[in-house]
Design a protein around this nucleic acid. Structure first.
Lengths: 167, 167
DNA sequence: TTGGAATGTCAACAAGACTGACATAAAATC
DNA sequence: GATTTTATGTCAGTCTTGTTGACATTCCAA
């Protein structure tokens, strides 16, 4: 550790375990705030976070397959299936049998699914927007850099793939 | 919205809904990374995230009461009680009946509880340390600012109270 | 001193994750 | 053409962690 003295990155010496611990706690409390608003909306409609995640990623990658979604979300098919079944039954998501490969189901949001997704993401965006406004663009850049550096390499790749396909 | 042009904070005009959406996603993936390491340790020992949270906050505020912990964690007392019971039964946490008010239980980590807490927080700190190293101290400052700005006001107060009592 | 408030415990239930087993249909391979 | 692999769906059962309701204990104030 001490071999960093006078050799570069000296600032890092100021990050004590206790300071890192506060970072951990900040992450915990911030994530709770981050999910609080959509949770309220979901609760009213009888859905949970699992439904939110499915809606989010179907919105982001329309026509994605069940298997794709599975690996993005990192849950089992049984778990995802329960959620998808209710979303399809209640007309928020549509599953189209693939044309090239008929085993696949391509997932899309229906208008009412898109409407709920919009409501959910809007409250979340609003919280983020107001946080961003409070701290300024320089802090936001730092925020995004740290978040990305904290992801597992697999997720980070996936995250960046999705980012590219959009720009 | 447009009234901001030429009046300050013009940068914020570049934060489109899609960019905010990517921020949301980054938060989701980063949180998964953030919990992945301790989850593995917990799993081996047959505990869950709820146990981790209890250990963390008892470590941070030794002698805290069940009620205190309740409001910090934002769960019902029944839910916390189940977790506390197993931690006490297995000798990781000690509950001392209050001397002034015998209704209260003051919670402390035993040596083995402190050891597990250290293991859990160490892997989490290590992830954070390496992310911080990757992006540099300026980005870290921004990260912390955004996290704090995203918390609900109540949690933010609590977070800052705990921060003070330490410095 | 007694009744209400505060604190904590026990029991039962629900959501949503998991594993394992199995079914079906389609595609790919031999 | 037969066989294997892949994609998806379903049933059953378990676990964690949240919930509510009922209850015991303790404290305090009227």
């Amino acid at each position: 550790m001490n071999d960093q003295i006078g050799r570069g990155r000296p600032q890092l010496l100021f990050l004590t375990d206790e300071q890192l611990r506060k970072g951990i706690e900040a992450m915990y409390f911030a994530y709770r705030g981050f999910t609080a608003d959509p949770d309220r909306i979901l609760d009213q409609r009888g859905y949970g976070r699992a439904h939110h995640r499915a809606l989010h990623f179907i919105h982001q990658s329309p026509g994605t397959t069940v298997n794709n979604l599975l690996s993005t979300l990192g849950v089992t098919k049984q778990s995802l299936n329960r959620v998808l079944r209710t979303l399809i039954e209640e007309g928020l998501v549509e599953a189209q049998v693939g044309t090239r490969d008929k085993r696949e189901r391509h997932l899309h949001l229906t208008p009412s699914g898109a409407a709920l997704e919009r409501d959910l993401s809007e409250v979340q965006r609003e919280r983020m927007r107001s946080a961003y406004r409070e701290v300024g663009p320089e802090a936001v850049r730092g925020f995004r850099m740290v978040l990305e550096a904290m992801m597992d390499p697999d997720m980070r790749r996936q995250f960046n793939r999705m980012k590219e396909s959009e720009e």
